[in-house]
Design a protein around this nucleic acid. Sequence first.
DNA 1: TCGACTTTGTGCATTACTTCACAAAGGCAC
DNA 2: GTGCCTTTGTGAAGTAATGCACAAAGTCGA
Lengths: 232, 232
Amino acid sequence: MIRRTPQQPRERGIPDATVARLPLYLRALNGLAERAVATVSSEDLAVAAGVNSAKLRKDLSHLGSYGTRGVGYDVQYLIYQISRELGLTQDWAVAIVGVGNLGRALANYGGFVSRGFRVAGLLDADPEVVGDHIAGLVVEHSDGLESVIAKRGVSIVVIATPAPAAQAVCDRVIASGVTSILNFAPVVLTVPAGVDVRKVDLSIELQILAFHEQRKVNGGPVMGEEWAGEVS
Amino acid sequence: MIRRTPQQPRERGIPDATVARLPLYLRALNGLAERAVATVSSEDLAVAAGVNSAKLRKDLSHLGSYGTRGVGYDVQYLIYQISRELGLTQDWAVAIVGVGNLGRALANYGGFVSRGFRVAGLLDADPEVVGDHIAGLVVEHSDGLESVIAKRGVSIVVIATPAPAAQAVCDRVIASGVTSILNFAPVVLTVPAGVDVRKVDLSIELQILAFHEQRKVNGGPVMGEEWAGEVS
DNA sequence: TCGACTTTGTGCATTACTTCACAAAGGCAC
DNA sequence: GTGCCTTTGTGAAGTAATGCACAAAGTCGA
């Protein structure tokens, strides 16, 4: 069993669900900071982040005790602590492979640059696209993937290629020593242990919406419609 | 105690976690169908979808008993059942508001069209963009949002505008009777009860990756680095 | 028809996450 | 100081999701 020693409950074990919400809090806090708010209560921050305040407090308590009872949280200080916990106080060199519309959207997305991510390379296999200037960078041919990763210290790769190309890119990237991959291609990537893959499928959320919308309209899947295929 | 109303063949409550995985199974099944696979075991399908097989079986059991013991699941039949459950056997008219790179990527995304979603309108506030031809549609000015929704039976709206514009678009959309919104803008939308909002933040997954990457490198947040701001 | 074999569907134990509710901590007025 | 007020941080209770392990149900060859 590969699990934490029962001895050490104080180990840096932040629940996954909490980690997933920290970026949300960070965004809300940045919004407050822009409006020059100095201090915020868990209640107000929870509203701004769209969660329940008890959950917010418990989440923050996993990072440490950074609030002041009777007052709330210092906005700047909390931004710093969450950023540090997420590793956003350091500079991450990111390469984006696949410069279609999605790759372009990502390259231009302000939310990356403003959070410690630096787009260090844009690569594409299509000669038509190579050479384009996007977000201050020149698109390079994906043949040079390995050298871009090595020379520019890339530690996170974003895959935004068509589905059929994704696994091959993934393999090459891993061979170059990258262990963190963000995959936008609609395929399940096979990777060795120790490599972290996170995926975003743009259509999944839409399908979940359709599920709920359907229930609003008619209380569930259409009944009485029969399957016409062969079941054998 | 499972009480079923005579008209409902089975309990209607499918866990959220299950609903969120159904699109994943559907994608894996479509991949199998393309390769002309007729039947699949929970074990194989689980691998293809990147989940554990017990979980897969439990998820599918919430939809009904569609497998055959000793054999597995009929691929086509299961595709049909999951699609029906998710509401993808009907046609959903979707409008995309905000035609930047992301909006274009979404409009061209095959995963939408192939799953029962029909892009019925592309709208943008920028006169420069209005009139462009994208994915077989002409971009319209967002002034016409209400009329597009009403005339084309739009029931789901995708917001891909810059953050500052999102809430206003959201309000107008809701006023037009839409109750399902997919939000790509990095803001928390305020909506009345009964309206479903799902959000996708392209940078959240990247931040979660950074969190894990940081731990691989140095076992946690950089220590000894002190906060330089004013706390009290 | 039978028996060996495969694979589903699910009860149950476990783990993870959420929410409640309140004592303790600190600020602030006087 | 003292006492009131606000808000945090957290045990404890409640809820949801996961994974194990196996009986039941079905296939298939002989």
